[in-house]
Simulated scan of single mutants.
Amino acid sequence: MKARAFSYLRPASVAEALAAFAAADGDASYIAGGQSLVPALALRLQAPERLIDIAHIPELRGIALADGVLRLGALTRHVEAHDNPLIAAHAPLLALAAPFVAHPAIRNRGTLGGSVALADPASEFPAMMLALEAEMEIAGPDGTRRVPAAAFFQDLYQTAIEPGELLVAFHIPVAGPHHRCAFDELARRRGDYALVGCGVMLGFDDAIVAEARIAFLSVGPVPQRAAAAEAALTGRALDAEAIRAAQAALADDLDPQDDEQVPAAMRLHLARVLLGRLLGRIAGDAA
């Protein structure tokens, strides 16, 4: 099967891209890296009349640090999340998750904006944006607004981006020297979609966990924060008892459904195993 015939535009600015979408009466799609859209076009899962190429818009590029916030343009590529020193230093969960994203050819072309806007529940970067408490900068006909990650992911493949709007950038509070992070996922083969994945970011006050952020992927229709597990860790030393308490608390945080790959009970078990592994890793590093 081939994509339907479409017109192609390459705007030079965000304003031009928004105007091109509006002129198409909504029968248009934005394309940047194309790692999700091109297969959908080939299968005719999407068949827009107009394709708007945003890959060359300068406003969507750039990685900058200012006033304790790291700004990542939506066109930041997956490989940059892996290699860029500012991301590694100030948004380490993105750097830790990047090697698990698909394969090198996809990481060289795919963009953070495309991954987060698609909101695949098995994708690494949406969950890490949730753990990092990022804000998404979204441009639309009425101007620009910011949406916290906790409100951005709404349902399966559904986000706070309205038709015609464009994800412009991510604003991420920087990690400090008191933070410790870890990421891992379980998959049948490296590069496959994860059966379950998890990113952990802990802030320490001496040996006590002062702040905990835990986000899972592949456990439901949207990335999931583990609030009960976070509460089980906060205010105590990261010892074996605290780790067991956090693992047990996942029963209150996660409610995976049975599917063709993994029964719900197995997915919850894998989530507990993975969380224990990551917390143990952080405890060892802190020591």
Rank of each mutant, 00 (worst) to 15 (best):
T76Y: 08
A117Y: 07
G26A: 09
I161M: 09
I214S: 00
V219L: 02
R213L: 01
P39G: 04
R50G: 07
A228N: 10
A127N: 05
F6D: 13
C181W: 14
A42D: 10
A95T: 09
F125C: 00
A66F: 13
A81F: 10
A24R: 01
A139E: 00
A231I: 00
L45Y: 04
P126V: 01
A245V: 02
I54Y: 07
L130D: 00
R281N: 10
R10A: 14
D205S: 05
E165M: 03
A212L: 03
A210V: 12
G26Y: 15
R190K: 12
A117P: 05
L195M: 06
G62K: 09
I52M: 11
V101L: 04
D83R: 14
A55P: 02
R145A: 01
Q224N: 11
D259Y: 04
R50V: 15
A227V: 12
D120S: 07
V200D: 08
Y8Q: 13
F100R: 02
R272S: 00
P58T: 12
A240G: 05
A12D: 10
G68C: 03
S13C: 15
V262S: 04
R213I: 02
P121M: 10
I282D: 00
D184T: 01
P148V: 01
A231C: 00
L96A: 02
G68D: 03
A160C: 00
L9E: 13
L156I: 11
H103S: 02
L37A: 15
E185H: 12
R272Q: 06
A248F: 13
H82C: 11
A246K: 02
R189C: 07
V69F: 12
G284T: 10
L9T: 14
A64F: 15
A286Q: 15
L195D: 06
L275C: 04
A131W: 08
L238P: 05
A64S: 14
L18C: 02
L233A: 11
V69L: 10
V116P: 02
L279E: 08
V147A: 08
F100P: 01
H90D: 04
A226F: 01
S7M: 15
V69P: 05
A91F: 10
A24H: 06
A210T: 10
A182M: 07
P173M: 03
R44L: 05
A264W: 12
M201F: 06
L167P: 01
V273A: 05
V38T: 13
C198D: 12
V147Y: 12
F21V: 08
I31H: 09
A91H: 06
D253Q: 09
R44Q: 03
A95S: 11
Q257R: 13
G220E: 13
F183Q: 07
A182N: 03
A283L: 10
G203Y: 01
A64K: 13
H78Q: 09
G68K: 04
L250Y: 11
P263R: 03
I57N: 05
E230P: 00
I282M: 04
D53Y: 04
H178S: 06
A169K: 14
P263D: 03
R213S: 00
I161H: 08
A74I: 01
R145W: 10
R44M: 09
G62C: 09
P221W: 01
P163W: 11
H179D: 15
Q154N: 11
L186P: 07
V38D: 09
A187E: 05
A240D: 14
H269I: 13
L233W: 01
A15W: 03
